[in-house]
Write a protein that binds this DNA or RNA. Structure first.
Lengths: 202, 202
DNA sequence: CAGGAAACTTGAACATCGTTCAATCGAAAT
DNA sequence: ATTTCGATTGAACGATGTTCAAGTTTCCTG
């Protein structure tokens, strides 16, 4: 009994890691079940013993990506000058750097679309909401009088704005922005957003 | 000679319009050549007489979407209080509204990915760069001393930030934000960004 | 207007996907 | 050793984008 389950568990781990590598190397569209099966040494159909869907596989890879992203943002949050303003700048830059260094895996987080009827599992939803908390803390220091709800909204707005700059900045379709320039733009605009928000409370 | 070309031209127009409707109704992933052929009354393979690729078809639909978006931003730019600050806010809100009202077509602009080796045609690139000019004008009024290049960079940053808020705000995966709330958040953050940028020049 | 050339149109065929499932295999239990 | 039952296989299915030889229409010329 244990023998079979062990094998299954190992295969499952291999599958997810191989899928991660494959997305990183060839993009989300380059993920093929037959390639996966060959890579982990099993039959094409066997993939569906380890995972119900390709959708689930992508979500599992996404979970790992979000975990690493979370770590990157955590170190950015706690490393360096503790001023909330500069902490938020560091977090934004860290987001940009992570996206640049993990371009295809990061893209897969947003490119992936499931059939409208399928609902995505809880473990996947929770993963995503965790990200805002890195922004929430410094924001709470900057705006002690704001309600939790307000802070949450502002945190998401800030995150979204930085996300947009990174997303369009790393897009190769338009004129590709050199990474150092993008980092500078992001730092500038984050400082401007914070200053503008702070000024309103005075 | 004319007869054949007329028919071709009409079919081509039909094709693009049908593709547009199909994307609007069922999303980019719902665009199928066989459905298109049936809808415009020709054989499956005939689609490739009108268009070299599905890629080209999506780009042509995208061009129409960008044109309509441009119009929406134009009226927002010239309608209402002429203060540059409020003009920029109106443009941002107009972008948000357009995305909400043309959700799938707007998404198709960014979801679509071509094979890495294929280069996208000039007419498609030009379409996209036009958008920034709506932001450029008010920005130039706010920052008369900045260089053209600087203004262009700031314009793209502002656009990208708003784009991010709209993109993540309209995403249904996470908690869906009610549209009025999203509009308010965008207006707030745009004002904050502008105020923050202006404060730096004083 | 006839008739051949050129261009257009067709739809069957191909390659590639994700996914399914009846048949086969192998390990644990008796 | 035999049975049993779930795990595994890989062939097959249904879509899908794309191609192309064959058939059809259109156009030009004598």
């Amino acid at each position: 009994m244990t023998k079979a389950l062990e094998r299954r568990a190992k295969l499952r781990t291999d599958l997810i890691q191989t899928a991660e590598r494959m997305i990183a190397e060839r993009g989300l569209a380059g993920l093929k079940t037959r390639d996966l099966a060959r890579a982990i040494g099993c039959a094409n159909g066997a993939v569906y013993n380890l995972v119900t869907d390709v959708d689930e596989l992508v979500l599992r890879v996404g979970s790992r990506t979000l975990l690493r992203l979370d770590e990157a943002l955590s170190t950015a949050e706690s490393t360096g000058e503790p001023s909330p303003r500069e902490t938020l700048v560091r977090i934004a830059i860290a987001y940009c750097d992570f996206a640049a260094e993990n371009l295809e895996l990061w893209r897969a987080l947003f490119e992936h679309r499931m059939a409208a009827d399928k609902i995505l599992p809880d473990w996947s939803v929770n993963d995503q909401l965790q990200l805002f908390r890195h922004i929430y803390h410094p924001l709470a220091l900057l705006f002690p009088k704001r309600s939790q709800e307000d802070l949450g909204i502002t945190a998401r707005s800030l995150f979204s704005a930085v996300h947009g700059m990174v997303a369009l900045g790393l897009e190769q379709k338009l004129v590709a922005v050199p990474l150092p320039a993008l980092r500078k733009e992001i730092a500038d605009l984050v400082r401007a957003m914070i200053d503008g928000l702070v000024a309103r409370t005075e």
